[in-house]
Design a binder for these strands. Sequence first.
DNA 1: TCTGGGGTCCTAGGACCC
DNA 2: TCTGGGGTCCTAGGACCC
Length: 395
Amino acid sequence: MSRLILHVDLDAFYASVEQRDHPEWRGRPLVVGAEPGQRGVVATCSYEARRFGVHSAMPIAQAVRRLPPETIYVRPSMARYAKVSQQVMGVLETVSPVVERVSIDEAYLDVSGLTSLVGPPAIIGAQVKARIRQAVGLTASVGIGPNRLIAKLASDVQKPDGLTVVPPEQVGDFLAPMPFTVLRGIGVKTAPRLERLGVKTIGDVRQLPLETLRQHLGARTGIQVYQQARGLADDRIDPARPRQSISRETTFPEDVSDPRILEETLRWAAQEVGSIARQTRHLGRVVTLKIRFHPFETHTRSRTLKVPTADDAALFGAAWSLFAAEPWSGRPVRLIGLGISGWSATDGGVQMDLFETAAPEPCPEHDRLAATLDAIRNRFGADAIQRGLSRRSPG
DNA sequence: TCTGGGGTCCTAGGACCC
DNA sequence: TCTGGGGTCCTAGGACCC
């Protein structure tokens, strides 16, 4: 028996929350992300902005060139969005107990058992959308199919405010005409490899032998793409998928060479990561330093500790020693941050002790971040930016 | 043209052990 | 004197996703 999987995707989530909360912004192009003139990208934009060809992950400078002057630009308010997301997940749990949140604006539900209680898939989908709208005043697109892949693709075909049901017997016809780039695991690097084979649609991929896909995409992706092209994918929904890592990083407004600023920023990241790890009761053994230089040259260095930790000072110490061990000093740094992973398999008394040594903190991290960013702005702020600009356009 | 931040998963080489 | 093969851990980088 095939399962019934439902995928919910909140439409233009950050932008929709902003338009919901600021009625005067409704009906206008709106970008949530970096500010114009800053480094950064579009996180999400309203459908009015998408009409100009702007989309998520587009560099902000490029978006500004395309959008009209009346466009609204706002920085993301993650805490607010997280709250709305929580409300939505709560609503979903009133529909089915089997809900897996996959990101702030997306979730999968196993609704296999609901047809006899609620009705056919389309009725279940309509109910999900109605409850979300009623609870938080936002629209969502819903897709329903026999597995996660089909449900996800179905939710994509009629955005925004869409509802699409793909019964098992229609999966083949549903997939065949779609561009193969919608398959999971096909991105900017792998797409050209298949294009060179003359492939355009998922139907075309289905004509290729498994061996060909393995050769061109690698063993794992090759098999995955072969199966997806035939509509075969994971149909398990796991409400309790554990997280694998916690990290914080930041890109500086201008590249930074001063080691004191790098050190302060790494201390901030360590406090953030440590605080979240303690709140969520995670102790990790692997500390990873991430650093990015001009031009977008990114490195990671990691160290496995003898004793698992969630302690700010231990995290900072490990990351700073990784930094110090490299001949990097003096190179202008674009981004720096750190992460923790490799949760220890054991549990019990020892771990509890470790949690208790780390003092619980109210929430001074936000203040510290603000202070750190102020410090950076003071050093690299208006003057530095002015100098940079006048260098580019003298007079 | 200029590329955020937070994640997951895969690959591959080397160390080390049996 | 020559040199296997498997398993696991560690590390670095990369692709991809939202």
